[in-house]
Design a protein around this nucleic acid. Structure first.
Length: 298
DNA sequence: AGGTTGACCTGGACGC
DNA sequence: TGCGTCCAGGTCAACC
């Protein structure tokens, strides 16, 4: 059940394993809710495409695809300056270079695995991409909150909000100006900032010493600077550790992350604060369970 | 329009 | 052991 660091870990793991591979066949489960684009459109877009790169945008895994066959789809071939080549070829290569994208949102329980085809399919498998070398990329999701789609428009998928890992403190502060909702709810709102979920919202607010229910628009300049810093620090640290693993999150190898060892408030309601010893409180903000230290967070 | 709430699913943990 | 209840890191549509 992944937030930004887990999604990034999975995307990087899958990228290292499948970059450059051709997708030969696509199978989908037929569970309608899972597919944001139609299964026919997904199969048509992916079949025969070459995986250029796998990366993270917000909480979404983006697979950049190039179409074409054999050497034609190779990026070095696309860049080749061959005077014999027709104008049609050039146009096609240009379009191929832009290509399409396969979007994977893991929801709460989704996993994206790379396996040998002989390995039995896990229960709740909803999509299988068969690769040229005999391996498979598999999307498995018991709870079915995950979503699969394809994007073919030029420009590609940019995500719903601002990117938290690279945003400047000035732009970050500007996101919350005049907002009446709780800062915790604002951090979770993907159209404001994309990638932050319940764990890292609570952890960054604790490290910044800010009450989760404080109105976003009422944070002082100093508080915004502390929150910007703590959020980027906690995300970078979690990415380095390979993401959290509270229950069933696994990366592309099936290896658990271990950021849960670092949690200072998330999942610790009723226990004592590591910093001051006070009892950690559990409340609900924006419909989500929230844990904070009443002494450290003001 | 911005903000809040409940619905969508299954499985694991816990209590009796 | 078995059954019921509660909870879950995600969105998004529908409401206020």
């Amino acid at each position: 059940m992944p937030e930004l660091p887990e999604v990034e870990t999975v995307a990087n793991g899958v990228d290292a394993r499948v970059r450059g591979q051709r997708i030969e066949r696509v199978w989908t489960s037929g569970k309608p809710q899972t597919f944001k684009s139609s299964e026919e459109e997904i199969a048509a877009t992916l079949t025969g495409a070459r995986i250029e790169r796998v990366r993270r945008v917000g909480k979404t895994i983006v697979m950049d695809l190039a179409r074409g066959s054999g050497r034609e789809a190779d990026s070095s071939a696309a860049l080749r300056n061959d005077s014999q080549k027709s104008k049609d070829d050039d146009t096609r290569h240009l379009r191929d270079a832009v290509g399409a994208q396969f979007l994977v949102h893991l929801g709460m329980t989704g996993r994206l695995l790379v396996s040998q085809a002989e390995v039995a399919l896990p229960l709740h498998t909803h999509a299988v991409l068969s690769l040229g070398d005999g391996r498979e990329v598999r999307f498995v999701d018991p709870r079915r909150f995950g979503r699969l789609s394809v994007v073919t428009e030029a420009g590609g998928y940019a995500g719903p909000g601002a990117e938290p890992t690279t945003i400047s403190v000035e732009d970050f502060s500007g996101l919350f100006k005049g907002r009446k909702l709780a800062i915790k709810a604002a951090l979770l709102n993907q159209s404001i900032l994309h990638g932050v979920g319940n764990i890292y919202a609570d952890e960054s607010l604790f490290r910044a010493g800010i009450r989760p229910r404080k109105q976003a628009g009422k944070l002082t300049k100093a508080e915004l600077a502390r929150l910007h810093s703590s959020l980027q620090t906690v995300l970078a640290h979690a990415i380095k550790l390979g993401g959290s693993s509270v229950s069933d999150y696994v990366d592309a190898d099936g290896i658990r992350g271990f950021f849960q060892l670092e949690h200072k408030v998330y999942g610790r309601a009723g226990e004592s604060c590591h910093d001051c010893g006070a009892g950690l409180k559990k409340i609900v903000v924006g419909g989500r369970t929230t844990v904070y230290c009443p002494a450290c967070q003001r």
